[in-house]
Design a protein around this nucleic acid. Structure first.
Lengths: 70, 70
DNA sequence: ACAATATGTCAACTATATCTTGCATTATAA
DNA sequence: TTATAATGCAAGATATAGTTGACATATTGT
């Protein structure tokens, strides 16, 4: 399940995947996979992304119909 | 930095670390380390913990003064 | 059409989240 | 005191998050 909210928040800030990746200290591939949805990032990375985009965890990573674990 | 909010939410539900761990499918040590604070859990685990405790990510894992990454 | 930028994807590698086992410590209760 | 339950802690193993490099495919502008 793709993370549309993350992609929208990034585009809203006019950042490319690579620019966001640099800001939070990971590679662009990692950002790409998180947006693509087939990924399980760490909490600290999620928090760094939120800070970079002026959002909170609930804004970007919370959904009512959450996928199963692992 | 200890996660007091998580511990309070767990105690409020009258669950031991081990019971919560069973609910979310990890070991009690993992829960213990998250509460102790020296840990960086994955997003899916955080979400599972939130669901088990009827909380959201912001409730349990968001803080204004966030620690540095890693 | 051409060039430049942004994204998708794959394989092999490294770092670290999580597991397993075991023992020590701190409650709480009989 | 003596159990028993709950938690802390640590070493070694395994699964997976994240890196690196490379190439393909959009996409956008000239």
């Amino acid at each position: 399940m793709k993370n549309i909210k993350l992609k929208m928040a990034r585009v809203e800030k006019d950042l490319t995947q690579e620019e966001l990746a640099d800001k939070v200290g990971v590679t662009r591939q990692t950002i790409g996979m998180i947006e693509a949805g087939n990924y399980n990032p760490t909490l600290n990375l999620c928090i760094a992304i939120c800070k970079a985009l002026d959002k909170t965890l609930d804004d970007l990573f919370w959904a009512e119909d959450q996928p199963e674990i692992k």
